[in-house]
């Protein structure tokens, strides 16, 4: 089973190919806003280097965010089209889950900057030894003010939490001030890595867990600003 992983949700542009548990290759490049120019050329290159053709793919995994709105659409459009053209299954995976699955520790807090003193966070734990899962979700991805995190994670204040991702030092300081026991993840786990996405994707697809490509969309976690403004002015709808 050959799975392609595509991630353009953050500054990191990630591409990986996993073949039945074996990583064939991986790109992780911090490119910032060049994803549109670079994604397809890099995909062509990884295929050429590994002597693979697009039609050899058995499935695709794509990061669904949160992240840059435009970046998310680039990756998801690509995954949808591959799914449609080759009739292969596609699985969308939250960016924070990819980050957490690539880190170590019993409890993992994954973060992405949401600007203005806010972060996108998700909270995970190491699954039981006999589980097929790579990661177990406790709190799904959401946006929160950094100052509110101690309250959100209150039930876990006695556990050691590994913090990964953007704003980890800032968040760590706030949690420490509330007497949490924290640890920082290694720098390479601060980014969603394409190989981890490929591993998660293969695992989901193997178990028949795929998304409907017609319904698949980014986890924006934020309404368009115009919608927010409109609702503030006129109420909902």
């Amino acid at each position: 089973m050959l799975t392609l992983a595509i991630d353009s949700s953050t500054d990191n542009l990630g591409l990986a190919l996993m073949e039945s548990g074996q990583l064939r290759g991986e790109f992780n490049l911090s490119l910032k806003r060049q994803h549109s120019e670079k994604l397809l050329p890099l995909m062509e290159e990884i295929f050429e280097l590994l002597e693979i053709e697009a039609k050899d793919l058995d499935g695709a995994a794509v990061a669904t965010g949160p992240g840059s709105f435009t970046g998310l659409r680039i990756g998801i459009t690509t995954a949808k089209m591959l799914g449609r053209i080759f009739a292969i299954p596609v699985k969308g995976i939250p960016t924070l889950e990819i980050m957490a699955a690539g880190a170590a520790g019993a409890y993992r807090l994954a973060l992405l900057d949401a600007r203005r003193e806010r972060v996108y966070y998700a909270f995970y734990q190491q699954p039981e030894a006999d589980s097929d899962d790579f990661i177990k979700e406790i709190y799904p991805p959401a946006a929160v003010r950094i100052a509110e995190l101690p309250e959100v994670l209150n039930d876990y204040s006695q556990k050691q939490i590994t913090i990964i991702g953007e704003k980890k030092l800032e968040v760590g300081k706030v949690l420490k001030a509330s007497n949490f026991s924290i640890k920082y993840g290694e720098p390479e786990s601060d980014l969603p890595r394409a190989a981890v996405l490929a591993r998660l994707g293969e695992n989901y697809l193997k178990r028949g867990q795929k998304d409907d490509i017609y319904q698949l969309k980014p986890a924006y976690l934020k309404k368009p600003q115009a919608e927010i403004n409109w609702q503030q002015k006129y109420g909902s709808n």
Partner: peptide, 19 residues
């Protein structure tokens, strides 16, 4: 509008590479 343009442009790139 660049965000909109990128949706079908990316789709077309993928079709080009895939086929």
């Amino acid at each position: 509008l660049v965000g909109g343009l990128l949706v079908t442009l990316t789709a077309a790139k993928t079709i080009s590479l895939a086929l």
